[in-house]
Amino acid sequence: MKRERVTLRFSPDAYDKAITYHLVRDYGLVVNILRAEITPGQQGNLLLDLEGEPADITAALSYLSSEGIKVTPSERQIVIDKDSCVDCGACTAVCFSQALLIRAPEWDLAFDPDRCIACGLCLSACPVRAIHSKFSDPIEEAPPADEA
């Protein structure tokens, strides 16, 4: 068994598809929805944990692409600009899932993407605005289903 955290981005014409149903029924995956965000007429973003056999996950991801859904791995949920970060720790105050931690003796800000649920609280808690989220970004290039 393998677990993978991904963000799905739906284009305006794709967000009425029963994606999670197909992931469960056709690929036998355990699906945990961590965050969902839909802007009517524009796009939908869904943060999922997918658990299953590695081959099934791979097949499910290629099915999603064929449906015109853009899949992003969870590592890219938030990006910390290390040049701006001063390792103060203010972001760790709001990080419920403890993806962001700052601890003795190094007191370096550490980020664990597997724990991040892309809630976005850290973005505004950071006093030097060093954290950016990719979760709500617009879809860069939505490939038509037949080219994906």
Binding site: D87, C88, G89, A90, A93, R103, E106, W107, D108
Partner: peptide
Amino acid sequence: GQILLNGKKIRTAPLSSQKK
């Protein structure tokens, strides 16, 4: 990283950079 207040664990966070 945490303290006890009224018997409950609460997470703590610094605002001042220990590293700097």
